[in-house]
Write a protein that binds this DNA or RNA. Sequence first.
DNA 1: CGACCTGCTGAATATAATTTATTAAAGAGC
DNA 2: GCTCTTTAATAAATTATATTCAGCAGGTCG
Lengths: 231, 231
Amino acid sequence: MPKTRTRTRQVSRLPREQRLSDIMKAGREIFSEKGFEAASMAEIADRAGIVEGTIYRIFKGKRELLEKVVAQWYEEVLADYDVQLAGVRGTWNRLRFMIWYHLQGIHDQPDLFALVAQQLRGRPDYEETEVYALARQYASHATDIIKEGIAAGEFRPDPPMQLVRDMIFGGTEHYAWRFLSGKGDLSVEETADQMANLVYGGLAQGGDAPAPGGLESVVQRLEAVAQKLEQ
Amino acid sequence: MPKTRTRTRQVSRLPREQRLSDIMKAGREIFSEKGFEAASMAEIADRAGIVEGTIYRIFKGKRELLEKVVAQWYEEVLADYDVQLAGVRGTWNRLRFMIWYHLQGIHDQPDLFALVAQQLRGRPDYEETEVYALARQYASHATDIIKEGIAAGEFRPDPPMQLVRDMIFGGTEHYAWRFLSGKGDLSVEETADQMANLVYGGLAQGGDAPAPGGLESVVQRLEAVAQKLEQ
DNA sequence: CGACCTGCTGAATATAATTTATTAAAGAGC
DNA sequence: GCTCTTTAATAAATTATATTCAGCAGGTCG
C-alpha cells in the first residue's frame, strides 16, 4: 500500500510548438527574474509544468534557451520600432526618437537588456548567433538616421558612422548601467534630449577636422581679428 | 617497495604574502587565457604549484580571486596614466590622449578588459567592490578633462558631463568589442582622433542647444569678417 | 484491438567549486 | 638537539547543477 511507485503518472503530450512556447515563456520569466546563472533548469521546468529532461528535447541546453528567448524579444522590438519611427519627421527628431526608443526599452525591460550585455555579447561564438544578426539590424537604426542626415545636408558627409553608432549605444548602456543593475533611476526624456543634442552637434559641424588645435586655433584667431575689426 | 603511500609528500610553507602573489599571478594568467568560467580552480592551483584547497585559505573563492587580480591591474594602470598625462598640454591634446590611453589599454590587455565588462560590472554587489571604486577613479579622467576645457573657456559651461563620459567609455567599449572578443583589429590612433574630434566638437559649441550649424556658421561668419578686414 | 512511435519522465552521470579532516613544516621552549 | 604547538597545505569528501539516458505511456494507424 505505501508503495509510491504505483501512482500512475499523469503525462500530457503536447504538440511541439505548444511545449516550445511554454518553455520559452517560463524561461523568459525566470531569466528576467533571476538572471542567467541564478536561474536553474529545474525551476524553469517547474514553471513550465514539466520535468528538466523535457527542456533538452527541444533546446540543446540552458544557453540555447536563453538565446531563443532573447531573439524572440528582439524581434518584437524591431517590429515595433519600425511602426513607431514611421510617424517621426526631421533628422533631429528622428535621431532623438531613436535614442529615446532605446532608452525606453532599457527602462521597460532592464533585465532582458542586461542578459544580452552580460551573457550573449562577448561569447566567442556571438557573431554566429541569431541574436547577433538581430542586434546588427537594431544598431543599423542609428546609421540609417545618420545617412538620412547626410543626405539632407544637415550632417557633414564623411563622419565615422560606426563610431558614432557605438557611442550612442555604448553611451546609453553605460549611462543606464546603475539602473540596469537595479539601482537608481533613469530619466529617459532628459537623457534622450541631451544625447541627441550632443550627437547632432558633433555631426553637424566639422567634428572630424579640428586637428590638434586646428579649428580651435582658427576660431581664436578669427575671434581676435573680429574684435579688432569691431573696435 | 612499490608502496606509493610511503612517499613523504614534500610541502613548502611560504609566507602568506608570497603564496598570495603566486596565486594572483597564476590567476591573472589563467583568467586572461581562458576567461572566468573556463578557468578552473584546479588549473590555477596547478600553475601556482599548489593544490586547490590552498587557494581558499587566502581567497574566499573564485570570484574574490578575480576581483583582486583585476583590482591590482587597475592600480597599475591608474598610476601609469597620471605619469603619462602630466606631459600633455592643451585641452584637445589631453582629451585625445585620455581616449588614446584607454584604447591602447584595450588593445594591449583585451582579456582583462573583457573580464571587467563581463564578470564584474553588472553584478548586484558591484558598487561595493574595490574594482568599482577604482573604475570610478579611472572614469574621472574624462570628467577632469571636460572640467579643464570648461575652465579654459573652450567648452560650453554646462554640458551633461556624466553622459559625455559614458559616451566615451561606452563608445570605445562597443567599438572595440569585436577586437575584445578576439576578432578583427583595432586602429588605436585613428579611432582616438575621430572620437576626440567628435567629443571636442560636441562640447565646444552649443551641443545641448541644437543650433543646426552652430559652430560651423559662427566660423563662416568670422571668416567672412576676417576676409573683409584683411582686404 | 494491438503494435508502434515518440514525448515525457525520473533517475543517473558529470563537472567544478567549495568544505573539511588530516598531515607535516617551522619555530618556541627547555 | 629534542619535543610540542601552531597552522599551512593537502587530499579526499561534499554540494550544486547542468546534462544524459533507459524506459514508460499517450496517441495514432493499420
